[in-house]
Write a protein that binds this DNA or RNA. Structure first.
Length: 926
RNA sequence: GCCCGGAUGGUGGAAUGGUAGACACGAGGGACUUAAAAUCCCUUGGCCAUUGCGGCCGUGCGGGUUCAAGUCCCGCUUCGGGCACCA
């Protein structure tokens, strides 16, 4: 009899898996495919902590389960290897980021290998590998060479657009663009080459645009919206300001509707879909033209509340609006110009911090197209240039922002919904009955009357009216903005772009990949150019300068799931055969933090590749599971002030103490290891303790897992102490996969004991005796429960079920192979090493993954009797065991005549008796 | 401010509207042992009763629906996440 020697078992089978290429997969049309993917990690210098593998373990369990169910499972892993930390480190130390990245990757790999994942490492990708980023560059180039046709809702080659211009100019054009242009075919033909290039830039999916960007001076780079939080960079926490810059952009906005529609077809959580819907921000409304009084000018506003047209009491233009200076009267010019100057200086951050209502009257008046009323036009920075038309009609009675503005500047507030009290605040709800539309005694243009309608009806009526009378048009706006795609950094994909006469040109496909050049330092140049400005001969062979920016982090992660299908293909991002077989990811596991970044960009990227016929599915990630975060659980010791004496938790209130973080690795079940503590740091060498019951009890708190809190738990240490199988099962046992929870090693013993107990049972020798009905019932109810729970990703209850099963079997003193052999297969996804060991111990010569997932048989689960809980008015009082096939009437009869029932009747009248077969009996008393 | 998600013993958590607290940790008691570890057995939501039977309360709070509510509905409290001048 041997102990459960997990070290020996685990090393042996890990080697076997490698030697026999057990996790190697290939296209096999004869078998159904299943694609399980983890969000690949950025290999940071800190290595993995115990929280990182949570999602990987879950996906690994599912991948193995699917394989046992007969699927050909693709389960790859790789590295999101470009990124800021390596570059920051390079700036500080001069160490090439490729070297640190490689080092970190090796460390990650070592740690991942210890946990026993079934990754097919032959498919590994690294975003910084030229073999990989060739296809990132290639996709970008394709985006440059395409535009988006709104009529057919897909990308088209730019040559088609040129054809259209040649024949019709911009007539009948319905395509995604930066701004609406208007020219005839002859005007097009008369344009110079450069003018044509500039015009086309307005339509390309990857385009060079002058945009307001989040500029981070400290990082010397531009950041995407999701890389900025509270005006600070997510990486590093440096201030970010607004700056106008020429940048590469991706026309993600063209795909807004498809990104929205696609959410209906994927199996994601509602909250994640909501987050994406909010981010895309579809808003259906109306554009209305307003004429300017005493002028031929007019401008367009966007509103979702056309029903409130009668309540408009002023107009507001964004400071950046081209109309602002156009309409300003000479009297007001100075004030307006001063205001524009002031707002320009205010950074986004200041505007967030200081939300004062500001604005200036332009002196001009607009004419309400319905009432003919003259309404003052103001300028204010609460109107955004980048959304809608950069101009609004203000309805202070029914919009809180307009309300605040009207109150500040003493403008009229005119309610147009019955009963709305606007003395204290606006009434924003889209509910109620419309009034004052038009005002009593007045009439509106075209005889329009909205009075008496509900808001909903009124919106529809007004919309139709505006459209019919040519006052405007129905319009859908999206909050989603184009992605800024340039970074003024070194450690990223170079753009396959060179400049000729100042206009960008794409390199030939044959020149891809364009390799990242070596440079002497990783900082911007003295003249403020990006680091690539330092590269020698950074030009084409003909001497044209290459682009100095590199691509952002999300570039490489946007299509990696496609590349895993065919990672070594030098002729295509993925072959047709591989893509048509693997199609898309069936199960994607990762954190919620990517909800609006990666998960939007890669859906966009995939849709674009679908339009090109490269990707075969509209959505890349069919089902998505968000694993929760593992937080740290910190421990504290309490030092009595101005001493070196530490007092145990229960006694600390008697003293004046300072709590000090103590390394959780020298604490076990909140009991401090005193010797380890003394050795931990020199100043504690002479520490003295006030104990309770001979022990030092530490306090604890849930915090972020970080070095400074001394609460980082490394998976290697757990594997070393308990084995990978225990780590895997314990991480799952902690609770539902999607929940965030603190890492707490208290409890890991329970899981380890389970494996030990199982091992001892197996090791005592299994017999070939036939199983009893009781044993079969235990086994088959476990098969049923575990199969169902794996399917719904409820892994914690699977582990419980294993424990219940083993408890039952040991109570039955079961040592039978007929029972334990299927148990080993069930356990394989969770604890693959021990399962493999026992499987081979039973005489099998190939991996346990070649086994078949057991099916449960209902016939073993049939109960001959049922324990009925008997309740009175809903309160359970006792149970009674009755034959399962007893009819409800018979059950009622038995229960009502029972001695125990009599006790609870106590003279009361029985109103009703409810019998739910095989469930419960409830007696309703009067 | 708006939109999501949660709140169950000392702890992690379980529970298709049908015996709340499965499973595990921790704790207490016992067996084995010279002793310890390991292992095994019992108890373990609270309060009252404890001589036995038992009784009352209990899933953040207040209402409701129902024979029956942790679960469904309405209104709060609170914690977490997302968005935040998006017209």
């Amino acid at each position: 009899m041997a102990d459960y020697n997990f070290k020996d078992i685990e090393t042996r089978w890990k080697q076997y898996w490698v030697d026999n290429k057990v996790y190697r997969v290939d296209v096999d049309e004869k078998r159904p495919k299943f694609y399980v993917l983890d969000m690949f990690p950025y290999p940071s210098g800190a290595g993995l902590h115990v929280g990182h593998p949570l999602g990987y373990i879950a996906s690994d369990i599912f991948a193995r389960y699917k394989r046992l169910k007969g699927f050909n499972v693709l389960h790859p892993m790789g590295y999101d290897a470009y990124g800021l930390p390596a570059e920051q480190y390079a700036i500080q130390t001069g160490q090439h980021p490729a070297i640190t990245t490689e080092k970190n990757i090796n460390r990650y790999r070592e740690q991942l290998d210890k946990i026993g994942f079934c990754f097919d490492w032959s498919r590994e990708v690294r975003t910084c590998d030229p073999k990989y980023y060739k296809w990132t560059q290639w996709a970008f180039k394709k985006m440059f060479e395409h535009y988006y046709d709104n009529n057919i809702q897909r990308a088209q080659p730019i040559s088609k657009l040129i054809e259209h211009f040649e024949v019709k100019g911009t007539q009948e054009l319905n395509v995604a663009c930066s701004e609406e242009l208007s020219f005839t075919s002859s005007e097009w033909k008369n344009k110079s080459d450069k003018e044509k290039q500039e015009t086309l830039m307005n339509y390309r999916i990857a385009y060079l645009g002058k945009t307001m960007v989040n500029w981070c001076p400290k990082l010397g780079t531009v950041l995407a919206n999701d890389e900025v939080v509270d005006g600070l960079s997510v990486r590093g926490g440096y201030p970010v300001e607004q700056k106008m810059m020429q940048q590469w952009c991706l026309r993600v906005s063209a795909y807004a509707q498809r990104l929205l529609d696609g959410l209906e077809t994927v199996d994601w959580t509602d909250s994640l879909k909501d987050t994406q819907r909010n981010w895309i921000g579809r808003s259906e409304g109306t554009e209305v033209e307003f004429k300017i009084k005493d002028s031929n000018e007019q401008f367009t506003i966007f509103t979702t509340r056309v029903d409130t047209l009668f309540g408009v009491t002023f107009m507001v233009l964004a400071p950046e609006s081209e109309y602002t200076l156009k309409v300003t009267t000479s009297d007001q010019r100075k004030a307006v110009e001063e205001y524009l100057e002031r707002t320009k200086k205010r950074t986004e951050r200041e505007r967030i911090a200081d939300r004062k209502v500001t604005g200036v009257f332009t002196g001009a008046y607009a004419v309400n197209p319905l009432t003919g009323d003259e309404i003052p036009i103001w300028v204010s920075d609460y109107v955004l240039a980048g959304y809608g038309t950069g101009a609004i009609m203000a309805v202070p009675a029914h919009d809180s922002r307009d309300y605040a503005f009207a109150k500040t500047f003493g403008l009229e507030i005119r309610p147009v919904i019955e009963g709305a009290d606007v003395s204290e605040q606006s009434y924003d709800a889209k509910e109620g009955i419309v009034c004052n539309s038009p005002m009593a005694g007045k009439s509106a243009f075209g005889g329009l009357v909205l009075n008496g309608l509900t808001v909903k009806e009124s919106i529809a009526t007004a919309k139709a009216f505006v459209k019919e009378h040519g006052l405007g048009r129905v319009k859908v706006n999206y909050r989603l903005r184009d992605a800024i795609f340039s970074r003024q950094r070194y450690w990223g994909e170079p753009f396959p772009v060179y400049y000729k006469d100042g206009m960008p040109q794409m390199l030939d496909d044959a020149k891809l990949p364009l390799l990242l050049p070596e440079i002497d330092q990783y900082k911007p140049t003295e003249s403020g150019e990006p680091p690539l400005g330092r590269a020698q001969n950074w030009t084409t062979e003909d001497g044209f300068p290459l682009e100095l920016c590199t691509m952002p982090g999300f570039a490489g992660s946007s299509a990696y799931y496609l590349r895993y299908m065919d990672p070594d293909n030098m002729d295509a991002i993925v072959s047709k055969r591989a893509n048509e077989y693997w199609k898309n990811v069936d199960l994607y596991v990762g954190g919620t933090e990517h909800a609006t970044g990666h998960l939007i960009y890669s859906r966009f990227w995939n849709k674009f590749l679908k339009d090109l016929g490269i990707s075969s599915t509209e959505e890349p990630f069919q089902k998505l599971i968000n694993q929760g975060m593992i937080q740290g659980r910190s421990n504290f010791v309490y030092r009595i002030k101005e001493t070196n004496t530490f007092v145990s938790l229960g006694l600390k209130d008697k003293y004046d103490v300072t709590p000090i973080h103590v390394d959780v690795n020298i604490v076990s079940n909140d009991i401090l290891n005193l010797e380890a503590f003394k050795a931990w740091r020199p100043e504690f060498n002479t520490a003295e303790f006030i104990l309770e019951d001979g022990k030092y009890v530490c306090g604890w708190a849930v915090e972020k897992m970080s070095k400074s809190m001394y609460n980082v738990v490394n998976p290697d240490m757990i594997v070393d102490k308990y084995g990978a199988d225990t780590l895997r099962m314990y991480e799952m046992f902690l609770g539902p996969i999607e929940l965030s929870k603190p890492w707490d090693t208290n409890g890991i013993d329970g899981v380890h004991r389970f494996l030990q107990k199982l091992w001892r049972t197996y090791d005592a020798g299994l017999t070939d005796e036939a199983a009893t009905p009781a044993e079969l019932k235990s086994l088959h109810s476990a098969i049923k429960k575990i199969s169902a729970d794996v399917e719904r990703f409820s892994f914690n209850t699977c582990i419980s079920q294993f424990m219940i099963l083993l408890n039952e079997l040991s109570a039955l003193k079961c040592q039978k192979r007929a029972i334990f052999e299927p148990v080993i297969v069930l356990l394989t996804p969770f604890a693959p090493h021990i399962a493999e060991e026992m499987w081979h111990g039973l005489g099998y010569k190939t991996t346990v993954l070649d086994a078949k997932w057991p099916e449960y048989n209902d016939q073993y689960l049939v109960d001959t009797s049922v324990k009925y809980p008997v309740s009175f008015n809903g309160k359970t009082r006792f149970t009674v065991e009755l034959p399962a096939d007893m009819t409800p009437a018979e059950v009622e009869k038995v229960v009502m005549s029972s001695e125990q029932t009599a006790k609870y009747l106590d003279g009361k009248t029985v109103k009703k008796v409810i019998v739910v077969p095989k469930k419960i009996v409830n007696v309703v008393l009067g």
